[in-house]
Write a protein that binds this DNA or RNA. Structure first.
Lengths: 219, 219
DNA sequence: CAATGTATGTACTAGTTAGTTAGTTATACG
DNA sequence: CGTATAACTAACTAACTAGTACATACATTG
């Protein structure tokens, strides 16, 4: 009867595997919290979408809030690991800015759950991030890369010398986050889907132009 | 005993005044929904913070969701009414852009509840805005003003001619919304409060420069 | 001033939801 | 091979929460 499909998502009991159970719960939790928020997500529903039971959530994460914090940590560390792969050191400063901006842009588009979790965490005044040691001490590869580009551009007298890396990072994030996070209300009001694939290249180029023209203004 | 302080927030029964009861409930609801989100807000708590009872919420708004939609509508129409007062027609295009940008900037800073409601509504995929006739047909004074500025700038050959008003509006919004909406996680990670009054002028000028340099690039 | 509808308060309820109690099964290890 | 312990399940509970039934006071108007 029971055919053995070794890696099917929610089939056989799959024996006992602590790490697998834990990570399956986490994956489901990320999706649920991102979809409905902390208060809107239901522990029972998260459990039902895994192969295990609610009891295991309490066993591994202590409670709803512990699960939420772990989900946040997992989402953040995953994103940061991806960012670490960015390599723009070999490009000239202007090209490096365009590349970094484009990568950030694509990145945000392909991780909507992460963006939603960040929005939700802001609604909670970042209370959980502040409480998490993991998240407090997380390195920021994208900002580091940006800082080095700006230094090179400035040394080569190609960029203005009065800009702060965090401010530039903020500009880029603002645009990319807004496009994803505010997609729905923006579309409802302006009848324009900022994530329409037909407009993707236009917006990716636009944010690159925007930042680069700011950095090279008057030069 | 009971001293009559005519306008104290939560004192005497104040007789029967439908309009007053309704608007008091709405004001409290806006704050509660903005603070805790739709799922996180509690009907009982909203009622407790008014001078009336939960019964009245159901009497006037039908239910929690009806109240939430009314709160959204109230917040949006209030903001739009303010935007309507923007007058930049007498300024030259560049100055008008700076002025409009600065107004938008200050505007977002002084209405955090509105920004939070928009974030929350995006978490709900703008489902309620889409359902509301009031919100669907609301005029957009800020975009209209921007459109006219861009036309004037373009006619005077001061601005590039390949920019779309909605895109420019999006840039400005992105920056201003991000600064308010993502304040908490940004501060937790970069240890920089984007709303620190000491940095306000810097950021207000920065968004003006950013937009203006984009619009006048190569000119 | 009767009467009719609007506005309001009190007390309740049915359903939900986070968290728990009490136990069972598999696996590692001596 | 047996036993300690980690991994796991099912059923339960106490508290909460949106929504309602019922009663009533006030005000307007004929």
């Amino acid at each position: 009867m029971a055919t053995q499909t070794p890696d099917s998502p929610a089939a056989a009991p799959a024996g006992r595997d602590a790490e697998r159970t834990r990570s399956e719960i986490l994956a489901v939790a990320i999706r649920e919290f991102a979809d409905k928020g902390f208060a809107g997500a239901r522990v029972d529903e998260i459990a039902a979408k895994t192969r295990t039971t609610k009891r295991m959530i309490y066993y591994y994460f202590g409670g709803k809030e512990g699960l939420y914090i772990s989900a946040l940590e997992q989402a953040y560390t995953g994103i940061r690991a991806l960012e670490q792969q960015v390599d723009v050191e070999h490009l000239d400063p202007a090209e490096a800015i365009r590349r970094l901006t484009a990568l950030t842009f694509d990145h945000h588009e392909s991780h909507p759950d992460f963006i939603r979790l960040v929005s939700i965490e802001n609604i909670h005044y970042a209370r959980h991030i502040a409480r998490s040691e993991i998240l407090a001490g997380l390195a920021n590869p994208a900002l580091d890369a940006l800082t080095r580009i700006l230094e090179r551009g400035r040394a080569a007298h190609r960029f203005r010398d009065d800009v702060d890396p965090i401010d530039v990072h903020m500009m880029i994030s603002a645009f990319c986050v807004f496009r994803t996070a505010n997609r729905y209300t923006f579309n409802a009001i302006f009848k324009r889907d900022m994530l329409d694939p037909a407009r993707r290249d236009h917006y990716r180029a636009m944010i690159g132009d925007l930042v680069l023209e700011y950095l090279t203004a008057g030069r």
